[in-house]
Structure formats: C-alpha cells, structure tokens
Design a protein around this nucleic acid. Structure first.
Lengths: 236, 236
DNA sequence: CAGGCAATGAGGGATTTCCCCCAATGGCCA
DNA sequence: TGGCCATTGGGGGAAATCCCTCATTGCCTG
C-alpha cells in the first residue's frame, strides 16, 4: 500500500539536494496514486497575483497535449484560488460539456475528466505555497489524500529550500531584536505577550518597538509593519 | 515500524467523533515514540470568541501539578517562541542545572531530561494551534518527527472541528469603508486623523476598524494590516 | 581605551486604542 | 415589505500603546 511509504518519501524529499531528485521522487511516488501532472509553486498573496514563483510545471494540464508554462497554468486554473478559503488539501474535478470546462471542489473525484489534489502549504504568516497534482484516474481515498498531502508538503519545503537558497541578506536597518519583535507584533501578539514569551520586560519590548518606529521613520506601529513588510525587514 | 501507521492514525483521528477517542488514539500511537505528556491548543490569537483555547493537557509539564491555561502555557514554555522562526515541527530538550530549567531546540534530543516535539499547525492566517508532545525517552529520528507531526496535525484539526463546531467561517472580505480606513491606518494615520480627514466621527472609524479585525479574524490592528496586505485588500 | 551601539529595563504620565453595549439611517433583495 | 447589512454615531470603562527621560551592561571598533 503506497500510503505506507508516505513518511519514507517525505524523508527522502526532505534530504534532496536537487530539484531533479525531488521531481523523480514525486513522479515515482505520485504515479502510484495515478498522478502524472504536477505544479509546484510558492505563493505570497500579498501581490496582485497569488502565485509568486513557480518551481515546477509538468504534464498535460489542459488536455491539449501542449506543455504548460507557468503563467498559463495560473491564469487558467481556477482551483488555485480556493487554497486560501479551504485551508487543507482538497480534491477537485474538471469536467467538459458544451459550455466548456468546469472545475469543482469535490470530496471524492470520480468519473471522466481530469481530477486533482490541491495541497496548500501554510507557515507562520499564512499561505506560503502549494502543490497541484493531477491525473485521469486517481486514488481518491482519504488515505491517498493524506499521503499525497504529506509528500507535497515535503516536496514544497525541499524545493523552496533549494531554490530560494541565495539567501538575500536583508539590509539591516532594524536591529535583530527590533525586527524580531516587530514580526511578532505583525503576527498579532501584544507587547505583554511578546515580553512574556521572549522573557523580557514590557518596557523592553516597548522600547524596541519605539526604536523600530524611529528607524523606519513612521509614526505608528501599524505603519511600521507595512513599511517593514515592503522593505523585506519582516516577512509579509 | 510505527511510522508505517502514521497515515492510518491520521485517518482515524480525522474521523474521530469525540475528544476521548482522539486522546486514546494519540496516547496509543505516541507511546510508541516514547511520549506521555500532551498539550493540544489553539493559538489563533484571533477568531473572536474562540481565542486561545486548550483542548487537552495531560502529564505533569511544569512539575507543579497545576492546571495551565493556554496563555500561561504558551508563555511558560519557551519552546513556543520558536514557532515563528522555524515553521516546522521541531525537537526540544529541557535540562536542569543549578540555575534552573533550560530549554533548547535541538536536532536530536538525547540524554537525561525531558524531551519533546513541538508541532505548530498553520493556516491561511498564520499560526492556528500547536501540539506538544513530551517524554523522557523519545524516538528522535526524522521519521518519528514526520510521523508524529502528521498525527499531531490531524489531532489538532479533528479536535478543533469537534470543539469549535459552530459557524467558524468568516467571510474574509472587507467592506469599502473598512478597507479604506485600514489603508489609512497602514499609512500611519491615527484614528482621530482619519476621522477628521474623512469627515467621520472617531467612533465610526473605531467601529470600522473593529469590524475589520473581526472579519479578518485577527486580534490586533497590526496583524490586520499584515493579513490585509497579504490578501490584497490593501496595497502593501 | 574611549565612544558607539545593541540590549535590557525603569518611572510617570499622556494618548490611543480596544471592548462591551446600543441605535438610526438607507440601500438592496427576495 | 421585512430582513440583512453597510454606514454612521454614541456612552462608559478597561486596556494597551506611546512618549519622555534616564541608567546599566556588554560587545565591538577605531
């Protein structure tokens, strides 16, 4: 049963040192569930476009036998839009009739058409990326969903680790503590909570926040967050 | 090998219809990795009424035998503070010396002391909850980390589904005024200034901001800014 | 070795935001 | 036409943030 291997494949992916080996592992494992189309991308919904950077597109996604480039995929696949609503991996089905293609979110995809699994990957600040798997005859069991979901998550994290490697060091306008505390604030934590969690006094947290505002040249913490996100001092 | 059962246990948890059965499944499965202390809590720091809620605490985490509420737990367990940095499940170790307790994030916990695995669960809005597993002799292999992580994630989602049944979908859209005022706030304006500029009363501005926080499911305006930027409701 | 700067924390007070209610208007829709 | 919702506004009080100053420690650097 392929689900038995889920953890092993995830481990393998975690240790991968090249995108090629990630792809090989995913292809081999996912084919056991009937998938032969893949998309892997990072998403930071802050921009007008949901999709930030595409790591991998493969397969006959639109039934025209043509290779799909990243832009086309994003534009033509309405399923992508739902990853923010749903919050967990979900199955979808694409059917064809006189009027054209219809995408639907379903619990158990079956019958003719292309079916798929959409796996969003979330992090401390929300959506970070997603993997789409597609095929014509897929294993639509809950176990398959969980297993493929685990695999997809590991594949995404591994790919991102490899591709986003060139660790662009952010210009250090803010000191370490300042940006750290600003990040917690942006995550919705109050000063007192941050202080308690980091083992500091309320005063210190407050002082760091004020210093951060001064350095960023803004009046309010709310604005500091926007500016810090925009300049990459904290993740948005 | 217990990792083989990870997907099966996750499925079992997913289908659980009572907290008791979740707990039983977790106890049984996690004991195979050496865990005998558990904490399961939502840390959404948001979402209106269901803020920061402990679903399950078991085992003597702090050695004082007292009941712990969610905030206290999060504060007293220094491990929690790494959730934002790390973004994935991680091992930790607590050791004792003359000066007191020391928590450390480690790749491979071993030796004397209490060891544990911290599994954060993320969603579209960021951190939604976490599960902590602790024990004195635990399986610290990467496979165990992945397996227990999958189990913990499923346990959290199942518990939340059961405990927070009632309508937990918030329409994640802002009204015109709400996003307008949020945008001014993100630009560094104070409520009073916005009110004056837009020709409104302070109350109205305040009410719109509160409504916006509610709708975005966040606790603070600072977080609302981040989430709104991320979701494209206001420009970054 | 002095000076700068990060990190920590305090006192005390001024502002601001946040939270619980409540109510009136006007638009839209079934 | 009755219900839903956006928009507007209020009262009162609690909580949090913000602002000014000052001080200590420790690290690095010219």
């Amino acid at each position: 049963m392929p689900t038995d291997d889920a953890v092993r494949v995830a481990l393998l992916l975690e240790r991968s040192e090249s995108l090629t080996s990630i792809q090989d592992a995913v292809r081999r494992y996912a084919s056991g569930f009937g998938y032969d189309r893949f998309v892997l991308f990072s998403a930071s919904a802050s921009l007008d476009e949901l999709v930030d950077r595409i790591y991998w597109v493969e397969g006959d996604w639109f039934g025209d036998g043509k290779a799909v480039d990243a832009k086309t995929y994003v534009r033509r696949c309405p399923v992508t839009r739902h990853i923010l609503d749903i919050g967990e991996a979900f199955f979808w089905t694409k059917t064809l009739d006189q009027e054209g293609e219809h995408y639907r979110i379903v619990r158990k995809p079956q019958g003719p058409g292309i079916h798929g699994l959409q796996v969003p990957i979330f992090g401390p600040l929300g959506l970070e990326g997603a993997m789409s798997l597609g095929g014509e005859k897929i294993d639509a069991s809950p176990a398959a969903r969980l297993s493929a979901g685990l695999m997809a998550t590991s594949a995404f994290l591994a790919a991102r680790r490899l591709i986003e490697m060139p660790d662009r060091e952010t210009p250090r306008v803010l000191s370490g503590r300042e940006s750290e505390i600003l990040a917690w604030t942006a995550a919705g934590w109050r000063q007192a909570d941050i202080a308690a969690t980091l083992g500091l006094s309320n005063r210190t947290v407050e002082n760091h926040l004020r210093k951060a505002r001064q350095r960023l040249g803004v009046a309010t913490t709310a604005e500091a967050i926007r500016v810090a996100i925009r300049n990459g001092f904290i993740k948005g």
